[in-house]
Design a binder for these strands. Sequence first.
DNA 1: CCTTGAAGCTATAGTTGCTAGAGACATTAG
DNA 2: CTAATGTCTCTAGCAACTATAGCTTCAAGG
Lengths: 146, 146
Amino acid sequence: MLTIGKLGAKAGVKVPTIRYYEQIGLLPEAERSAGNQRLYGSKALERLAFIRHARDLGFTLEAIRDLLSLSDNPDQSCAAADAIAKAQLLEVENRLARLTALKAELERMVVQCAGGRIADCRVIEVLGDHSLCATDHLHPETEETP
Amino acid sequence: MLTIGKLGAKAGVKVPTIRYYEQIGLLPEAERSAGNQRLYGSKALERLAFIRHARDLGFTLEAIRDLLSLSDNPDQSCAAADAIAKAQLLEVENRLARLTALKAELERMVVQCAGGRIADCRVIEVLGDHSLCATDHLHPETEETP
DNA sequence: CCTTGAAGCTATAGTTGCTAGAGACATTAG
DNA sequence: CTAATGTCTCTAGCAACTATAGCTTCAAGG
């Protein structure tokens, strides 16, 4: 049996986070010792590792809640879990596209900064003037109805 | 002179967000009309556009606060602005690497889920068992001190 | 056996970057 | 002039934690 501290260390999750997960119902209420301290077995460790892994992969706690409820009754079809993963994949591809554009823009900004005065600084200039921006891709919805 | 609504429309920022920016000191307190409504000139519009653009590029409000204070006294060296932009670039590259790894992982998950029962479904398995994870890259700090 | 310090407990409040609501006043179109 | 829309302040809420305060419990040393 693990105390909350040990569990946190093993799973790479901070102690208050574990209590938070219990509070919002992602983890079941833990057993308690005689002195009212939480005690965890290996099932809890697995579940926590699952949550942490999914968080690292960018799943929201809501998606994780769904995935967990799927894995809690493993006799249903895989389709639901598959759908969740696919939705996440779309999200990720989206974020990836935006981030890539963003990286290009920042690189452009940084490269063009010759170390002069701020008055001539491309960083400030580009940030101040949208028309200097290479990626229309970013902030497309500005000025709809002039 | 623009009312807050017009300003928001021009800059692509919602009205409460403008008030929020004023509240936290990113925008100066606006002039008021006789009836106590905020009025903005073109300087405010520029500043707000700057903020929005920087937010789109992923800068935190703190970083933006710094950038704005730099651009408020434009006779100093560009180095600080450059540093902020470079830090942001690093951050973005980091996120990009993580997201790329994540995409591969999700693709693997989706491909391997052939539509069987959850018991055979790799989605749950991959998320639950770190060792099945293709990308060591993610969650590196798990289990430091066993 | 006792003490001391670390780790645990609960409960509350703070973080970031907004967004949403309530209820009152201002402005504008018809 | 009235009705509709816009704006005002203030408060509370969102995700997903993180930090604080003021306790109790536990493990190890003397």
